[in-house]
Amino acid sequence: MMTRNGPWALAFHALFVGFILAPLIVVCLVSFTTESYLSLPVTGVSLRWFRAIAGSDFIPAFYNSLYVATAAATIALALSIPAALATARWRFPGRDALTAFFLSPLMVPHIVLGVALLKFLSDIGLSSTYFGLIFAHVIIVMPFTLRLALATLTGLDRAVEWAAWSLGASHGTIFRRVTLPLILPGLAGGWLLAFIQSFDELTMTVFVAAPSTMTLPVRMFNYVTDNIDPLVAAVSTALIFVTILLMIAMDRFYGLDRLLAGKGAR
């Protein structure tokens, strides 16, 4: 019984989509320029700025981001699975408070987390270490992995686990052979979302990262506060394409709207 959108609605929709895509398309366009400054319309097409990335210090920053995001997403997921099991499967005193605490980083502005961690990490002598940076990111991404783990666990039919139980499986076997395979798509979706969140994080990382551990967003931020040129546009274009690939993977795993539903809610 789908009622159609009228012409005005479709015109609005076109404008909205244009508004959403315009800056992304523009960044892609200008990165192919032959000039050494940003110009529109693009007069000639070249890959010179993409080649220029190779020799720039964006590359070590990219690897830093890759390491930190991989480690943070993995640690967050590893912590989330048992925590989600506890809150999804047991009624115990303090359960609601615990869940609220685990989701609380969503409510704390990243700038606040940044200053707090800068102070704390320098107090305990972990400033400018990967260790401190990674665990700072774990705090930021764990609400996402936890939400996804909780959602998939509560969506699981308990009877399936009970069936395995009655068929003679022990708790360990039930988890390994039945529960884990069934929640794996949700966990994978959560890991990817956490990875992207960590990879893109700037506001907190600006405080926590040292020159040696500087991530790509921090490097880009420091760069654009000086000048905006085709080189940084080329880096951005590369990032857009990598994100599109990851996005398609996530949509396959879990459905993008369901996945992102956990992103905004506070």
Binding site: L24, V27, D200, V224, S236, L239
Partner: peptide
């Protein structure tokens, strides 16, 4: 675009 870095979108 929520998954694209805020920095990239701002740059645009």
């Amino acid at each position: 675009p929520l998954l694209v870095s805020v920095l990239v979108r701002t740059l645009g």
